[in-house]
């Protein structure tokens, strides 16, 4: 699975309250979630994000609440991949479960800047910064996790497998 897009860059400890503020959790529809994605950390995100774009962040991305609305909002916004130094554990698990691609790669995070165009091959864990020409290698997910993500999440994956 290959992705390509422009980078939105953030720092450490991006929490789920800024990814999708709880004041909007009275509606879990994709339209409602994407309308407020990243609102409290980057009010222009919704206006500027295009399908295929990437989020790159530092440590502990997605910390805080267990709300699955957070990875859902990012996915609904069209983001094709989140690269971070590390992810908070519930967000990590939720991302896989709903089919939002994520990779851990501190080297890439260090080099990639906001606005760079980045391409990635999720099955190989290869990340290429097309703006600077630099390439990076992340640990790809094992095949069964990749299948869950490419099927669009755990439940769709299970349905496809006939469970």
């Amino acid at each position: 699975m290959e992705v390509k897009g422009k980078v939105f860059k953030y720092g450490n400890d991006v929490d789920t309250d800024v990814i999708i503020p709880a004041r909007y959790l009275n509606d879990s529809s994709e339209e409602a979630l994407k309308a407020h994605c990243m609102e409290d950390i980057d009010p222009d995100f919704v206006k500027n994000v295009k399908s295929g774009d990437l989020i790159v962040a530092e440590d502990n991305f997605g910390c805080g609440s267990s709300r699955e609305h957070a990875p859902l909002a990012i996915k609904a916004s069209g983001v094709s991949l989140v690269i971070a130094n590390s992810f908070a554990r519930i967000f990590y698990r939720n991302s896989i479960n709903i089919g939002l691609p994520i990779l851990e790669c501190p080297e890439a995070v260090k080099e990639i800047k906001a606005g760079d165009i980045v391409e990635a091959d999720l099955s190989l864990g290869e990340i290429k910064n097309l703006t600077t020409g630099k390439t990076f290698k992340a640990q790809p997910f094992p095949e069964f996790i990749q299948e869950i993500i490419s099927d669009g999440g755990l439940l769709k994956h299970l349905a496809k497998k006939g469970n």
Binding site: S66, R67, E68, P71, I90, R93, N94, N97, I98, G153, L154, L155, L158
Partner: peptide, 10 residues
């Protein structure tokens, strides 16, 4: 431990 809604559904 806390999980997301999909894990809760499963």
């Amino acid at each position: 431990t806390g999980v997301g809604s999909t894990d809760m559904c499963a």
